[in-house]
């Protein structure tokens, strides 16, 4: 089972990276939380019964874990020293793709946790039906929400902030 899990996760590592980058944007514990998502995926793996695509299941568990980690941080707030990540100035002068990515991530960071999860799924080309299944909404409601979030996101990108 372990080998099967590792193989499946390795095939979908990109998804996990994106979730971590979105939810733990400029967070010094990003790597640590990535590890926590892996642990929680492994713990939940026995309940995965091929009812849905592996990526759908992976998204659901990873998004729930990311939101839960943020909640735990709020439950036990503690003062931590700023790491080099907070001090560093992003080096994207020579890389237009990095610059675009940084701007997009910054904009997404203004959204609420649940809006983030909806927009990631949309940007990752998931169908409304799949998004509705992962989030727990009706398909029509999902469409409306995606439209609202897109408008909000474009406004943030244009204005610099909401």
């Amino acid at each position: 089972m372990e080998k099967e899990f590792i193989k499946l996760v390795k095939n979908h590592e990109g998804i996990l990276h994106k979730i971590c980058n979105i939810y733990f944007f400029r967070n010094p514990y990003k790597e640590d939380y990535y590890q926590e998502i892996l642990i929680r995926l492994w713990k939940s793996f026995p309940s995965y019964k091929n009812q849905s695509a592996f990526s759908t299941w992976l998204y659901r568990v990873a998004l729930n874990t990311a939101i839960d980690i943020i909640r735990k941080q709020n439950l036990q707030p503690k003062h931590t020293e700023l790491s080099n990540i907070e001090y560093s100035i992003p080096e994207y002068e020579h890389n237009i793709e990095s610059y675009k990515k940084e701007k997009l991530y910054q904009a997404i960071n203004y959204l609420s946790d649940v809006e983030k999860s909806i927009i990631i799924l949309y940007l990752e080309d998931y169908s409304y039906k799949e998004i509705a299944e992962i989030i727990g909404l009706s398909e029509s409601n999902t469409g409306v929400k995606i439209n609202r979030i897109k408008i909000q996101l474009i406004k943030i990108l244009k204005d610099g902030q909401e």
Partner: peptide
């Protein structure tokens, strides 16, 4: 802190 509802949909988990 330890009990989780990871397998549920995001809404159910919330």
């Amino acid at each position: 802190l330890t009990k989780t509802a990871d397998n549920m949909s995001v809404k159910e988990s919330l």
